[in-house]
Simulated scan of single mutants.
Amino acid sequence: MKNRIELSVEPRETGKHNSRTLRTNRKVPAVIYGAVTPTNVHVYEGDIVKYNTRAYENALFNLKSSDKNANGKVVLIKQVDVHPLTRRPQHVDFIALDLSKTVRVHVEIRLEGKAIGLSEGGLLQQVARQVEIECLPTEIPEFFTADVSNLGVGDALHVSDLKVSGSVKIITGAEQTIAVVSAQEEEVVATPAAAAPAAAAAPAAAAKAPAAPAKK
């Protein structure tokens, strides 16, 4: 079962003035929706800064609150709005989950192995870094791995090559390319030797040209 993290949230008053006051005190306005009556809460800024990272992507949180609508709910962080200059979190959307119903999320794809095409002069490119899936909240994988070891020049891995288990269903199209080994294009560079004949031709042509008549 997917581990859960305890997160404290508290009820809040709505309105721009109240939101500004919260942010001044290092608290972030938030809303919980989904399998719950929409509930306005606030959360400590330090917690959001800590958990709004790739390491905690799709993490499940157990809410602890004095608000009975929020207390004990299991949520995902759906969205964090940040200030364009300070990068401080300004607002958070939590989605409350029904653990018996599936949810759609995006999961990271990590490449593993060394493609044999690299020794053939090929270039490995990762085309897709995430895939959308649908599954029970407790079965959300941390990431998928895609083994590129057998890829030669011109070969590719697709979403259909990913291995899934349990209730996991891949939503992204099976034909979507994950990684490909392509041939590197050779760049033709003119050498000094190749350029020399052209340079030498200019003085020769000038020597053959008739002299201009002298002015009277």
Results as ranks from 00 to 15, higher is better:
R23Q: 09
A206V: 12
V9E: 10
Y44N: 13
Y51V: 12
G46P: 01
G122V: 06
A35G: 05
E185I: 00
G15R: 06
P213C: 08
K101Q: 11
P197A: 06
A128Q: 12
Q184N: 09
Y56P: 00
L85S: 10
Q184S: 02
V180F: 03
L22H: 01
A199L: 03
L123C: 14
A201K: 06
I170V: 10
L151W: 04
A59V: 02
A190R: 06
P84I: 13
V159G: 00
S149Q: 03
V80Y: 02
E10K: 15
V36K: 10
D161C: 03
A195R: 08
V181Y: 09
A35Q: 07
V164G: 03
V82I: 09
V80P: 11
T191A: 13
R54G: 09
L99I: 04
A128S: 15
A183Q: 07
A30R: 09
V189M: 03
M1C: 06
N25D: 08
L7M: 10
R54L: 10
G173Y: 04
E132I: 04
D81S: 07
V105F: 14
A183I: 04
H158V: 09
A207D: 05
S119K: 15
V148L: 03
L151F: 01
E108A: 13
K163G: 00
L76A: 01
P203Q: 02
E45G: 09
N52E: 03
D47C: 04
L76M: 14
V74E: 12
H83S: 08
I140Q: 05
T53Q: 01
K73Q: 05
A200N: 11
E57N: 11
Q90P: 01
A211H: 11
F61T: 05
L136R: 15
V188K: 11
R110P: 07
A35D: 11
A195I: 15
A206H: 08
L151P: 12
V105R: 07
A202N: 12
P192F: 03
D161F: 01
E185S: 13
R129T: 15
Y33D: 04
T172Q: 13
T53F: 00
S19E: 03
A156F: 08
G122R: 13
A202I: 14
R110I: 07
K2T: 10
L76E: 07
A193T: 10
R87Q: 03
K101E: 13
G117K: 07
R26F: 01
T172I: 02
A70V: 12
D98G: 03
H158R: 03
T172K: 11
R110C: 06
D81C: 05
H158G: 05
R129L: 08
A179R: 06
A179G: 08
N3A: 15
P210N: 09
G113V: 12
P84A: 03
L157Q: 11
T86S: 13
V189P: 04
A202M: 14
V75P: 14
A183D: 14
H158N: 04
H158K: 09
G113S: 03
N18D: 06
V43A: 05
T102Q: 10
I109Y: 10
L136C: 13
P89M: 15
S8V: 15
Q125A: 10
A209H: 04
Q125I: 13
A70F: 15
A190W: 02
V153I: 14
A156V: 07
Q176V: 14
E120H: 12
T39P: 00
K50E: 01
S100K: 09
N71L: 01
K78V: 09
Q126C: 12
A199R: 11
G34I: 01
L85F: 14
Q125K: 05
